[in-house]
Amino acid sequence: MAIINKGLAVAFLGVGLAVGSLSAAWAQNTLLNVSYDPTREFYKQYNAAFAAHWKAETGEDVAIQQSHGGSGKQARAVIDGLEADVVTLALEADIDAIAERTKKIPANWRELLPNKSTPYSSTIVFLVRKGNPKGIKDWADLIKDDVQVITPNPKTSGGARWNFLAAWAWAEKEFGGDRTKVTEYVTTLFKHVPVLDTGARGATTTFVERGIGDVLLAWENEAWLALEELGPDQFDVVAPSLSIYAEPPVALVKGNAQAKGTEKLANAYLEYLYSKEGQNLAAKNFYRPSDPSGVDAKLLEKFPKLELVTIEAFGGWKKAQPEFFGDGGIFDQVYKPGN
């Protein structure tokens, strides 16, 4: 009995302490950045850099919390109530969805920050096993009989949508715009996909750690990161003849930031992405900086020059999103699992 009394007392004390420390954590300046999968390493470094910058500037401490996942999934979580101050997602359509559904982001958000709210860009490349045993050089090679392709699910992953559109763009050029042939190519391509992970990081893990598949369609930064982190002796990066100019945009979730009183801080956080330090960190993490002028030339050497199609070729995301990835859209018609 005495034990139980003591136990209960300890338990309640524990609750009190924990609640106390949680609220203490809230009292300081806290930002929640909801981001997509492959930005983990970049934002880890950037958050530390920004916190130091903010401290030097204002003398205030700032704690930045991160959430990562497939871009579409993250957008839905914010729509569902995840209280992000800023979103740094893989594509415009996901931020548009938050803006439309919650009204917490102004509709003209792309005009609120430089370079259409895109501080860094990327593209889609191939990651293959060392020595490229299957001889994969371009999109045509992905549908060779014995090739297994790893890509995440376009329904949940922003990167996967860029992958899909890059493949589509190549096929359009290859087949001179013949819609039947293009659809056929993409359908065949997805028959070579054994796993659809929900996010780019899951797909990388499938390819790299689980040893499934011959080629990973990956963000350029994710491919280089895998190479760097997990051994250049295991993989090669292959740049296809044509790919897509992928713009992962950023935005302030004004509704949430205003409610929390973090608007000024959150804006400064996003603006710092465009600074020399921010751009260098982006390049160091294999993102193509939007303003390369102040970036170390050595960092820029890694980015191969290739033909890049922009989303405007698809009529912009407002048109491409429902047409390709909406319910019953092209992806739904193309991807029939199990056949």
Binding site: E41, Q66, S67, H68, G69
Partner: peptide, 22 residues
């Protein structure tokens, strides 16, 4: 949970996140 680092991550969830971070 929503998997927010530092906010809604319990220990077992943190294990998974770190594992996915390599």
């Amino acid at each position: 949970s929503g998997h927010i680092r530092g906010l809604t991550n319990t220990m077992p969830l943190h294990v998974e996140i770190l594992y996915n971070d390599y």
